[in-house]
Design a binder for these strands. Structure first.
Length: 575
DNA sequence: GCCGTTTTCGGCCCGACTGTTTTCAGTCG
């Protein structure tokens, strides 16, 4: 059983215990342990093997035993028992905004509600309003929340979130008295998908700003509206929270509302251990408040070097920031060029020249063209003859574009079902580089798929592995593949691994990108652009790389054009 | 259930907002 599955089960156990009305600290212990297991990722088997699992903060003797039992036998009696005690539909009720464990327990006991459908029936017949502790307003909110749960999956892509939040930030910024506005929450931490939007502003008097916010045209419903905070549901169902603080409180609030929750709790504990008190309004010492004009000063006041938002998950970043400065993370401006772009030669929307000019306009000094290979009939894959003709056009364009910009001749070559590539070696040798990707036979068993990809990664003509799991966020899980084996092979063969920056993919993910780097693999950030606008997706790939803790030297396409040109040759960039 | 330079018991982050309850519990982040 994989660590992600173990973490999911521990989380579910915590939730089931909450629904039973157990001691909340005991419940939280399971959620904390789930976070700890997630933080371990693929290190979990090693930790178990070395007998050091209980040394991980948040995992004690009891939960260690349960994890080991889960991993070794695949089942856990106490988990099964817990599931048997409670109706299976009860957990789903937690997704309804405004319903927590206590209310769900009350609804279950008083009205035998066991599912979303039961809840709807009870609400529509007015039974909920009559319950002790409930009223007409609560009943109406429950019904509204139900409609939300049923209409959306609950999360949105990071790209959607930025699009939704932009007009709100602008509207708040234009309010009189507002001196700062920042996006906070998981969006600032650049998570792959986003649950809700958090916006923070600073003003001497937040009230008029909040009043204006709840009246914006994007707002479909007002969920709450106080003097420092308002929550609304936007058209489309996404929730947006706006908080206002006084200017001198802004750095504390910015840090607090950026999260993550686990990071905040760890930092507050750290403050307490030093005789301080930290909350979203300030840092309080024995002799009164300790002013900070920035997040950097706040970290400094707690004896830490600054921690970038993307790393704030309480997965070791606090200990690292205590030991010394955290090395600078990669930024968008570090990228000198990129690979894996499509044109109208296959399924892209723009010409070679248009893509080249768009890349240059974005400050890149080279662009790799990787249209689809011949088996990708659905995507206009190139025949061997068309490969040759496209190469001639690229040569001509390079003459035209001048010495300070270069188009590279690449291909996104399908990895066929048996792990062989889609062209003979003599054709592959004609490219400047090869991106090898899986586009078919997604259903292969993990052993077959892993051997297939490993074979391609080992192929001397393959420069980089494209979107290593094939996942589509919120739509499709990746195919079953042992990434650990793929990473090990890539390290051995010197093959690059792509961080596909398309916001639907973000594949390789941050956790495995970190592991790949630690194993000595170089990553490459590619937009998988199918039109000029797709080049802007590079920013999402940079977000993944930052969450992975990568610096510029960990990413291939930060090198200057001259070095890239020298390294790109058949046999692999890392050879 | 976890944890410990106030340690093996007795805490566990903390503030805003809502609704219903007249003093606060529940939810959320």
């Amino acid at each position: 059983m994989r660590s992600a599955d173990v973490a999911r089960i521990l989380d579910e156990m915590g939730t089931l215990l909450e629904l039973k009305g157990e001691n909340p600290f005991r419940c939280r212990a399971y959620h904390n342990a789930a976070d700890a297991v997630r933080g371990l990722g693929d290190d979990l088997p090693d930790r178990i093997a070395s007998g050091k699992l209980a040394e991980v903060p948040g995992i004690g003797e009891t939960i260690q035993r349960k994890i080991i039992q889960l991993v070794t036998t695949g089942s856990l009696p106490s988990y099964e028992q817990l599931r048997a005690e409670l109706p299976p539909g009860l957990v789903a009720l937690l997704r309804v905004p405004g319903l927590g464990p206590k209310k769900i327990k009350a609804l279950h006991e008083a009205l035998q509600i066991e599912s979303l459908a039961d809840l709807r029936r009870a609400g529509e017949s007015g039974k909920i309003a009559g319950l002790k502790g409930f009223g007409a307003k609560t009943q109406r909110k429950i019904l509204e929340g139900l409609a939300f749960v049923e209409s959306t999956g609950g999360r949105i892509l990071q790209s959607t979130a930025w699009r939704l939040v932009a007009p709100i930030v602008e509207a708040v910024r234009s309010c009189p008295g507002v001196v700062r506005v920042e996006v906070c929450g998981s969006l600032r931490r650049r998570l792959e998908t986003i649950g809700d939007l958090d916006v923070l502003f600073a003003a001497e008097d937040p009230v008029p700003v909040l009043d204006r916010f709840v009246g914006l045209p994007e707002v479909a419903a007002v969920l709450s509206h106080g003097e420092t905070k308002a929550s609304v549901r936007l058209a489309g169902g996404v929730q947006c929270d706006l908080r206002g603080v006084r200017p001198e409180q802004f750095p504390f609030a910015l840090h607090y509302f950026t999260g993550s929750k686990a990071h905040n709790i760890a930092l507050r504990k750290r403050a307490i251990a030093r005789g301080l008190r930290l909350n979203e309004y300030g840092l309080e010492g024995q002799e009164g408040p300790i002013p900070c004009s920035s997040e950097e000063e706040l970290f400094q006041a707690l004896g830490l070097h600054p921690i970038p938002p993307e790393l704030r998950e309480d997965r070791g970043e606090i200990e690292r920031a205590e030991a010394g400065p955290i090395p600078p993370l990669i930024e968008r401006k570090d990228l000198t060029g990129t690979f894996h772009c499509h044109t109208d030669w296959s399924d892209g929307g723009n010409t070679l020249l248009e893509m080249a000019e768009a890349a240059r306009a974005r400050g890149l000094s080279y662009l790799g063209i990787a249209d689809h290979s011949r088996s990708a009939g659905y995507a206009g894959g190139l025949s061997i003859d068309r490969v040759r003709r496209q190469g001639e056009e690229i040569d001509a364009l390079n003459d035209q574009l001048g010495p300070d910009f270069r188009l590279f001749k690449g291909i996104e070559c399908d990895i066929l079902a048996d792990g062989t590539l889609d062209y003979p070696d003599e054709v592959l040798a004609g490219f400047d580089y090869v991106v090898a990707s899986v586009h078919s036979n997604f259903g292969q068993p993990i052993g077959v798929m892993t051997a297939r990809i490993v074979r391609a990664v080992r192929h001397p003509m393959v420069t980089m592995l494209g979107h290593p799991t094939g996942r589509l966020l919120l739509r499709r899980d990746g195919y079953a593949v042992d990434l650990e084996a793929v990473i090990a092979e890539a390290a051995e063969a010197g093959t690059l691994i792509e961080i596909n920056a398309n916001p639907h993919r973000l594949d390789l993910d941050a956790e495995h990108s970190r592991r790949a780097r630690d194993r000595g693999v170089r990553l490459v950030i590619n937009p998988d652009a199918h039109a000029v606008g797709g080049l802007d997706d590079l920013d999402y790939g940079v977000g993944v790389a930052r969450r992975a803790g990568l610096g510029p030297s960990d990413v291939f396409n930060t090198a200057p054009l001259s070095r890239i040109a020298a390294e790109l040759r058949p046999g692999g960039a890392g050879a």
